[in-house]
């Protein structure tokens, strides 16, 4: 067994998040999850979007790709199919995933591509100075919605469930230990996993604070929730008011995308020889 310490996972990059930012909790949960899992660090690949969340790429010393805004999932999909020995972890923002990259989300879920998506859902565009995000509540005031946000927010969990995601969970940055366990469960799940994380943006979002969530969150596992029951999961996912559930909403076993591709049933593509052997035969078909 490889031992991996939090020290091993650190980089020398100075951290540029605001003091007190919810992203620190996500980084800590990730580090401790990886330490717990005892998998060699070369096996991981972290893919991040663009936004404050994306800077996590700089602060974790595992293979990483800091891509463009909204495209965590397609990049992660390509990398996973190329080398399915990699454990591919995506970190996206709410603007990043549920606005710019929304189109990729249901497809990753219904393919059941074996990548893990952690969304830093701070209900605001952090890096671009606090504009309204697709998960901002109705009436949310910002520079882009001074009169209060007009649309209703996207419900990422319902969307994931409706898209046949095989693992759907929610975490809260105020409970790092619980979030770490969710991350481990997602990593150990076979297939696409969403962990939507209630993140706090202390600079721009003065409504969804640590205290706001502390007053409202409760753990599904403490309330007899059956995560194999889609109906229950859907019902719980609609609770967005005074009581906000965290934990695993839904989990099912379903063949991963790769399982249907005989060419990568065993050996990852990247380990296969690239020089074709039957090319001459194929050419003959055109004569």
């Amino acid at each position: 067994m490889t031992s991996l310490t939090r020290e091993d996972l650190k980089t020398e990059q100075p951290i540029s998040w605001c003091p007190g930012c919810g992203n620190f909790g996500i980084l800590r949960a990730l580090q401790t999850a990886l330490v717990d899992l005892k998998i060699p660090r070369e096996k991981y690949l972290v893919v991040t979007g663009i936004g404050c969340h994306g800077k996590l790429f700089n602060y974790i010393n595992i293979n990483g790709f800091h891509g463009i805004h909204g495209r965590v999932l397609p990049f992660a999909t390509g990398a996973k199919l190329a080398n399915h020995d990699l454990i591919v972890l995506g970190f996206a923002g709410d603007g990043d995933q549920y606005d710019e990259g929304l189109g990729h989300f249901p497809h990753a879920a219904r393919r059941n591509i074996d990548v893990k998506l952690f969304t830093h859902d701070n209900k605001v565009y952090g890096l671009t100075t606090g504009q309204t995000s697709p998960t901002s509540p109705q009436g949310y005031k910002s520079k882009t919605s001074p009169g209060g946000a007009i649309p209703t927010p996207i419900n990422p969990l319902m969307l994931a469930l409706a898209s046949n995601a095989s693992f759907v969970a929610r975490g809260f940055v105020g409970d790092v230990t619980h979030m770490k366990e969710l991350m481990k469960a997602a990593i150990q799940h076979k297939g696409f996993a969403l962990v939507d994380i209630l993140q706090v943006c202390i600079t721009f979002n003065r409504a969804q604070t640590y205290q706001f969530y502390r007053d409202r969150v409760y753990k599904l596992e403490e309330e007899n929730h059956d995560a194999t029951d889609l109906q229950q999961a859907l019902k719980r996912s609609r609770e967005t008011g005074d009581r906000i559930p965290i934990g695993i909403f839904y989990q099912e076993e379903r063949p991963v995308y790769r399982a249907r591709l005989p060419q990568i049933k065993t050996q990852p593509l990247i380990k296969q020889p690239i020089k074709p052997t039957k090319l001459k035969q194929l050419l003959r078909e055109f004569t």
């Binding site: 690949l45 397609p74 390509g78 990398a79 080398n83 990247i270």
Partner: peptide, 15 residues
């Protein structure tokens, strides 16, 4: 958009 990003993902991974 997905296609090019998938392709880049696969190429970064070495294909």
């Amino acid at each position: 958009i997905a296609a090019i990003n998938m392709t880049i993902g696969a190429a970064y991974a070495g294909l």
